[in-house]
Protein backbone atom coordinates (compact mmCIF):
# COMPACT_ATOMS: atom_id res chain seq x y z
CA UNK A 1 0.00 0.00 0.00
CA UNK A 2 1.30 3.42 -0.86
CA UNK A 3 1.73 5.58 2.20
CA UNK A 4 0.92 9.25 1.80
CA UNK A 5 2.03 12.27 3.80
CA UNK A 6 -0.90 13.54 5.88
CA UNK A 7 0.54 16.09 8.29
CA UNK A 8 -0.09 19.80 7.97
CA UNK A 9 2.90 20.53 10.21
CA UNK A 10 6.44 19.30 10.68
CA UNK A 11 7.31 20.00 14.30
CA UNK A 12 9.63 17.28 15.50
CA UNK A 13 11.09 14.00 14.29
CA UNK A 14 9.94 12.40 17.52
CA UNK A 15 6.40 12.38 16.13
CA UNK A 16 7.30 10.74 12.80
CA UNK A 17 7.36 7.07 11.95
CA UNK A 18 10.22 5.57 9.95
CA UNK A 19 8.24 5.46 6.69
CA UNK A 20 7.46 9.17 6.98
CA UNK A 21 11.13 10.00 7.43
CA UNK A 22 12.01 7.79 4.47
CA UNK A 23 9.32 9.44 2.38
CA UNK A 24 10.89 12.84 3.04
CA UNK A 25 14.36 11.51 2.23
CA UNK A 26 13.15 9.89 -1.00
CA UNK A 27 11.39 13.08 -2.02
CA UNK A 28 14.54 15.06 -1.22
CA UNK A 29 16.45 12.72 -3.51
CA UNK A 30 14.23 13.81 -6.40
CA UNK A 31 14.64 17.48 -5.55
CA UNK A 32 18.38 17.10 -5.33
CA UNK A 33 18.33 16.01 -8.97
CA UNK A 34 16.36 19.17 -9.81
CA UNK A 35 19.06 21.26 -8.17
CA UNK A 36 21.64 19.73 -10.47
CA UNK A 37 19.71 20.71 -13.62
CA UNK A 38 20.25 23.88 -15.61
CA UNK A 39 16.78 25.16 -14.80
CA UNK A 40 16.55 24.72 -11.07
CA UNK A 41 13.05 26.00 -10.56
CA UNK A 42 9.90 23.87 -10.42
CA UNK A 43 6.31 25.10 -10.13
CA UNK A 44 5.37 22.83 -7.24
CA UNK A 45 4.38 25.65 -4.86
CA UNK A 46 3.18 28.18 -7.43
CA UNK A 47 0.35 30.26 -5.96
CA UNK A 48 1.23 29.28 -2.42
CA UNK A 49 2.43 31.80 0.12
CA UNK A 50 5.11 30.94 2.63
CA UNK A 51 6.01 33.14 5.57
CA UNK A 52 9.45 32.79 7.08
CA UNK A 53 8.64 33.74 10.64
CA UNK A 54 11.95 34.06 12.44
CA UNK A 55 11.74 35.23 16.02
CA UNK A 56 15.28 34.16 16.75
CA UNK A 57 18.00 35.41 14.44
CA UNK A 58 19.30 32.92 11.91
CA UNK A 59 21.16 33.36 8.68
CA UNK A 60 21.95 29.91 7.40
CA UNK A 61 18.65 28.18 8.03
CA UNK A 62 16.66 31.15 6.78
CA UNK A 63 18.67 31.40 3.55
CA UNK A 64 18.31 27.67 2.99
CA UNK A 65 14.55 27.80 3.47
CA UNK A 66 14.19 30.92 1.35
CA UNK A 67 16.11 29.40 -1.53
CA UNK A 68 14.09 26.19 -1.25
CA UNK A 69 10.88 28.22 -1.41
CA UNK A 70 12.13 30.15 -4.46
CA UNK A 71 13.07 26.94 -6.23
CA UNK A 72 9.52 25.71 -5.62
CA UNK A 73 8.06 28.98 -7.02
CA UNK A 74 6.30 29.98 -3.79
CA UNK A 75 5.47 33.57 -2.86
CA UNK A 76 7.61 34.51 0.09
CA UNK A 77 7.21 36.91 3.00
CA UNK A 78 9.87 37.34 5.65
CA UNK A 79 8.79 38.34 9.13
CA UNK A 80 11.45 38.65 11.73
CA UNK A 81 11.23 40.07 15.18
CA UNK A 82 13.27 39.72 18.26
CA UNK A 83 11.37 37.93 20.97
CA UNK A 84 11.69 41.06 23.08
CA UNK A 85 9.75 43.21 20.64
CA UNK A 86 7.04 40.57 20.57
CA UNK A 87 6.77 40.47 24.32
CA UNK A 88 6.40 44.25 24.41
CA UNK A 89 2.83 44.17 23.25
CA UNK A 90 1.48 41.71 20.75
CA UNK A 91 1.76 38.12 21.84
CA UNK A 92 3.24 35.43 19.64
CA UNK A 93 -0.25 34.04 19.10
CA UNK A 94 -1.55 37.47 17.99
CA UNK A 95 1.25 37.78 15.46
CA UNK A 96 0.67 34.27 14.15
CA UNK A 97 -3.08 34.87 13.89
CA UNK A 98 -2.37 38.03 11.90
CA UNK A 99 -0.15 36.09 9.55
CA UNK A 100 -2.83 33.45 9.16
CA UNK A 101 -5.41 36.14 8.37
CA UNK A 102 -3.36 37.01 5.29
CA UNK A 103 -4.33 33.60 3.88
CA UNK A 104 -0.85 32.27 4.25
CA UNK A 105 -0.36 28.60 3.38
CA UNK A 106 2.79 27.79 5.27
CA UNK A 107 4.62 29.28 8.21
CA UNK A 108 8.29 28.39 8.59
CA UNK A 109 9.05 29.21 12.17
CA UNK A 110 12.19 29.75 14.22
CA UNK A 111 11.86 30.62 17.90
CA UNK A 112 14.09 30.64 20.97
CA UNK A 113 11.45 28.99 23.18
CA UNK A 114 10.98 25.22 23.11
CA UNK A 115 7.52 24.22 21.93
CA UNK A 116 6.61 27.59 20.38
CA UNK A 117 5.88 25.99 16.96
CA UNK A 118 3.73 23.32 18.63
CA UNK A 119 1.83 26.07 20.44
CA UNK A 120 1.16 27.94 17.19
CA UNK A 121 0.54 24.91 14.97
CA UNK A 122 -2.39 23.76 17.08
CA UNK A 123 -4.00 27.19 16.83
CA UNK A 124 -3.68 28.16 13.14
CA UNK A 125 -4.95 26.54 9.94
CA UNK A 126 -1.73 27.26 8.05
CA UNK A 127 0.90 24.54 7.95
CA UNK A 128 3.79 25.07 10.35
CA UNK A 129 7.34 23.93 9.68
CA UNK A 130 9.68 24.10 12.63
CA UNK A 131 12.97 25.74 11.67
CA UNK A 132 14.33 25.33 15.19
CA UNK A 133 12.76 25.93 18.61
CA UNK A 134 15.02 26.54 21.58
CA UNK A 135 16.90 23.42 22.54
CA UNK A 136 13.93 21.27 21.58
CA UNK A 137 13.89 20.42 17.93
CA UNK A 138 15.29 21.25 14.51
CA UNK A 139 13.75 18.62 12.25
CA UNK A 140 15.04 19.80 8.88
CA UNK A 141 18.62 19.83 10.19
CA UNK A 142 18.21 16.24 11.36
CA UNK A 143 16.65 15.26 8.04
CA UNK A 144 19.56 16.69 6.10
CA UNK A 145 21.95 14.84 8.41
CA UNK A 146 20.03 11.61 7.79
CA UNK A 147 19.96 12.30 4.07
CA UNK A 148 23.71 12.84 3.99
CA UNK A 149 24.43 9.70 6.00
CA UNK A 150 22.11 7.59 3.87
CA UNK A 151 23.60 8.95 0.65
CA UNK A 152 27.18 8.32 1.77
CA UNK A 153 26.73 5.06 3.64
CA UNK A 154 23.89 3.58 1.63
CA UNK A 155 21.92 2.85 4.81
CA UNK A 156 21.33 4.01 8.35
CA UNK A 157 20.24 0.85 10.12
CA UNK A 158 22.97 -0.61 12.30
CA UNK A 159 25.35 2.35 11.98
CA UNK A 160 27.10 3.72 15.05
CA UNK A 161 26.65 7.48 15.19
CA UNK A 162 28.42 9.63 17.76
CA UNK A 163 27.17 13.12 18.51
CA UNK A 164 29.74 15.14 20.39
CA UNK A 165 29.50 18.45 22.21
CA UNK A 166 26.90 20.56 23.97
CA UNK A 167 24.08 18.02 23.91
CA UNK A 168 22.20 19.73 26.75
CA UNK A 169 21.47 22.88 24.77
CA UNK A 170 21.29 21.32 21.31
CA UNK A 171 18.10 21.01 19.30
CA UNK A 172 20.19 19.37 16.58
CA UNK A 173 21.23 16.55 18.90
CA UNK A 174 17.64 16.04 20.06
CA UNK A 175 16.35 15.86 16.49
CA UNK A 176 19.18 13.70 15.14
CA UNK A 177 18.59 11.33 18.02
CA UNK A 178 14.95 10.58 17.17
CA UNK A 179 15.62 10.29 13.45
CA UNK A 180 18.59 7.99 13.89
CA UNK A 181 16.81 5.78 16.39
CA UNK A 182 13.74 5.47 14.26
CA UNK A 183 15.86 4.41 11.26
CA UNK A 184 17.77 1.85 13.33
CA UNK A 185 21.12 3.45 14.18
CA UNK A 186 22.92 3.26 17.53
CA UNK A 187 23.69 6.63 19.07
CA UNK A 188 26.48 7.73 21.39
CA UNK A 189 26.18 11.15 23.01
CA UNK A 190 29.52 12.49 24.21
CA UNK A 191 30.99 15.55 25.85
CA UNK A 192 31.63 16.87 29.36
CA UNK A 193 29.14 15.58 31.94
CA UNK A 194 27.89 19.14 32.49
CA UNK A 195 26.65 19.19 28.90
CA UNK A 196 25.54 15.57 28.38
CA UNK A 197 22.55 14.72 30.60
CA UNK A 198 22.70 11.12 31.72
CA UNK A 199 18.90 10.79 31.40
CA UNK A 200 19.51 10.16 27.69
CA UNK A 201 21.02 6.79 28.58
CA UNK A 202 17.54 5.64 29.64
CA UNK A 203 16.62 5.45 25.96
CA UNK A 204 17.17 2.15 24.19
CA UNK A 205 20.21 2.08 21.84
CA UNK A 206 21.59 5.33 23.32
CA UNK A 207 24.92 5.49 25.12
CA UNK A 208 26.32 8.43 27.06
CA UNK A 209 30.08 8.91 27.43
CA UNK A 210 32.56 11.58 28.44
CA UNK A 211 35.69 10.43 26.70
CA UNK A 212 36.65 11.33 23.13
CA UNK A 213 38.50 8.13 22.30
CA UNK A 214 35.58 6.05 23.48
CA UNK A 215 33.21 8.31 21.53
CA UNK A 216 34.99 8.05 18.18
CA UNK A 217 36.29 4.48 18.20
CA UNK A 218 34.06 2.29 16.08
CA UNK A 219 31.86 5.20 15.02
CA UNK A 220 30.61 5.23 11.42
CA UNK A 221 29.53 8.84 11.73
CA UNK A 222 30.89 11.58 13.97
CA UNK A 223 28.70 14.65 14.33
CA UNK A 224 30.38 17.55 16.12
CA UNK A 225 28.14 20.24 17.58
CA UNK A 226 28.98 23.90 17.75
CA UNK A 227 30.09 25.01 21.19
CA UNK A 228 28.99 28.45 22.31
CA UNK A 229 31.20 30.75 24.31
CA UNK A 230 28.34 31.68 26.60
CA UNK A 231 28.39 28.15 28.02
CA UNK A 232 31.83 28.83 29.39
CA UNK A 233 30.58 32.00 31.04
CA UNK A 234 27.72 29.99 32.56
CA UNK A 235 30.30 27.68 34.09
CA UNK A 236 29.75 24.46 32.14
CA UNK A 237 33.47 24.13 31.38
CA UNK A 238 36.57 26.17 32.29
CA UNK A 239 37.65 27.57 28.93
CA UNK A 240 37.20 27.16 25.20
CA UNK A 241 40.85 26.19 25.08
CA UNK A 242 40.37 23.33 27.51
CA UNK A 243 37.19 22.29 25.74
CA UNK A 244 38.96 21.98 22.42
CA UNK A 245 41.93 20.18 23.99
CA UNK A 246 39.72 17.60 25.67
CA UNK A 247 36.60 17.36 23.51
CA UNK A 248 37.70 18.71 20.15
CA UNK A 249 38.41 16.33 17.28
CA UNK A 250 42.17 16.66 16.92
CA UNK A 251 44.61 15.01 14.55
CA UNK A 252 45.67 12.84 17.44
CA UNK A 253 42.13 11.65 18.14
CA UNK A 254 41.74 10.97 14.41
CA UNK A 255 44.00 7.93 14.96
CA UNK A 256 41.04 6.21 16.58
CA UNK A 257 38.54 7.21 13.91
CA UNK A 258 37.62 4.63 11.29
CA UNK A 259 39.05 5.66 7.90
CA UNK A 260 35.60 5.55 6.32
CA UNK A 261 33.82 7.40 9.12
CA UNK A 262 31.95 10.55 8.11
CA UNK A 263 32.77 13.80 9.88
CA UNK A 264 29.74 16.08 10.16
CA UNK A 265 28.97 19.46 11.71
CA UNK A 266 25.71 21.44 11.56
CA UNK A 267 27.68 24.66 11.21
CA UNK A 268 28.80 27.27 11.58
CA UNK A 269 32.05 25.65 12.68
CA UNK A 270 34.51 27.15 15.12
CA UNK A 271 37.71 26.13 13.39
CA UNK A 272 40.17 24.67 15.84
CA UNK A 273 37.54 24.34 18.57
CA UNK A 274 35.13 21.52 17.77
CA UNK A 275 37.52 20.09 15.23
CA UNK A 276 40.91 20.71 13.77
CA UNK A 277 40.77 22.92 10.69
CA UNK A 278 42.43 20.32 8.48
CA UNK A 279 39.84 17.72 9.48
CA UNK A 280 37.01 20.10 8.57
CA UNK A 281 38.49 20.40 5.09
CA UNK A 282 39.67 16.78 4.91
CA UNK A 283 38.42 13.89 2.83
CA UNK A 284 36.19 12.43 5.54
CA UNK A 285 34.36 15.71 6.08
CA UNK A 286 30.90 16.07 4.52
CA UNK A 287 30.17 19.44 6.11
CA UNK A 288 29.56 21.33 2.85
CA UNK A 289 27.52 18.51 1.38
CA UNK A 290 25.25 18.82 4.41
CA UNK A 291 24.55 22.39 3.35
CA UNK A 292 23.76 21.32 -0.21
CA UNK A 293 21.50 18.53 1.00
CA UNK A 294 19.75 20.95 3.35
CA UNK A 295 18.26 22.67 0.35
CA UNK A 296 16.87 19.45 -1.13
CA UNK A 297 15.47 18.31 2.20
CA UNK A 298 13.74 21.63 2.82
CA UNK A 299 12.23 21.57 -0.67
CA UNK A 300 10.90 18.09 0.10
CA UNK A 301 9.41 19.14 3.42
CA UNK A 302 7.76 22.26 1.96
CA UNK A 303 6.40 20.21 -0.92
CA UNK A 304 4.95 17.43 1.24
CA UNK A 305 3.43 19.68 3.87
CA UNK A 306 1.93 22.03 1.26
CA UNK A 307 0.46 19.00 -0.51
CA UNK A 308 -1.88 18.12 2.31
CA UNK A 309 -3.23 21.51 3.34
CA UNK A 310 -7.02 21.61 3.60
CA UNK A 311 -7.59 24.63 1.34
CA UNK A 312 -6.39 22.76 -1.76
Amino acid sequence: MEQRWTRKDLLSLEDLSDWEINLILDTAQEFKKVSQRKVKKVPALRGKTVVNFFIEPSTRTRISFELAEQRLSADIINVSASSSSISKGETLLDTAKNIEALQVDLIVMRHSAAGAPNFIASRVKSGVINAGDGAHSHPTQALLDLFTIREKKGKIKGLNVSIIGDILHSRVARSDLWGLLSLGANVTLAGPATLVPREFAKIDRVKVCHNMREAVEGADVINLLRIQHERQRAGFFPSINEYSNVFGLSKETMKYVKPDALIMHPGPINRGVELDSSIADGSQSVILEQVTNGLAVRMAVLFLVAGCLKND
Binding site: A114, A135, H136, R174
Partner: peptide, 10 residues
Protein backbone atom coordinates in the same frame (compact mmCIF):
# COMPACT_ATOMS: atom_id res chain seq x y z
CA UNK B 1 14.90 18.78 35.80
CA UNK B 2 14.71 15.14 34.79
CA UNK B 3 14.03 12.86 31.87
CA UNK B 4 11.33 15.07 30.34
CA UNK B 5 13.22 18.36 30.54
CA UNK B 6 16.12 16.58 28.84
CA UNK B 7 13.87 15.22 26.12
CA UNK B 8 12.05 18.50 25.58
CA UNK B 9 15.16 20.68 25.74
CA UNK B 10 13.74 22.89 28.46
Amino acid sequence: DGYWSVILGM
